[in-house]
Amino acid sequence: MTRKVRRFSGGVYDLGLHVVWCPKYRRPVLVGRVAARLEELIRAKADEKGWEVIALEVMPDHVHLFLKHDPKASASYVANQFKGFTSRVLRSEFPHLKSRLPTLWSSSYFAASVGAVSEATVRRYIDTQWERPWKKDTGGKGA
Rank of each mutant, 00 (worst) to 15 (best):
G11F: 12
V29F: 07
D47H: 01
R88L: 13
M59R: 04
K72M: 10
K49Y: 05
N80D: 13
D61C: 01
G50P: 10
L15D: 01
F66A: 15
G10L: 08
K49Q: 15
P28W: 04
H18T: 08
K24L: 05
G32E: 11
I54R: 14
D14L: 04
W21L: 00
C22I: 08
H18F: 15
R7M: 06
V58C: 04
N80P: 00
F66T: 00
A36F: 02
D70S: 15
V63T: 13
S87Y: 06
N80S: 11
K45T: 12
V53Q: 09
G16Y: 07
R33Y: 00
K83G: 06
L67M: 13
P71T: 02
A35M: 05
P60Q: 09
F82S: 03
V63I: 14
G11D: 07
A44Q: 15
L15C: 13
H18S: 03
G32W: 07
S74I: 10
T86R: 02
E52C: 01
R26L: 07
S76D: 04
L65I: 10
E57Y: 02
G11C: 07
R26Y: 04
A46S: 08
L41W: 09
Q81G: 06
I42N: 00
K83H: 05
K72C: 03
Q81H: 12
E48K: 13
P71S: 05
L15K: 03
V20K: 02
E40C: 08
G11K: 12
E48M: 06
T86E: 02
A55I: 05
D70Q: 14
V63Q: 07
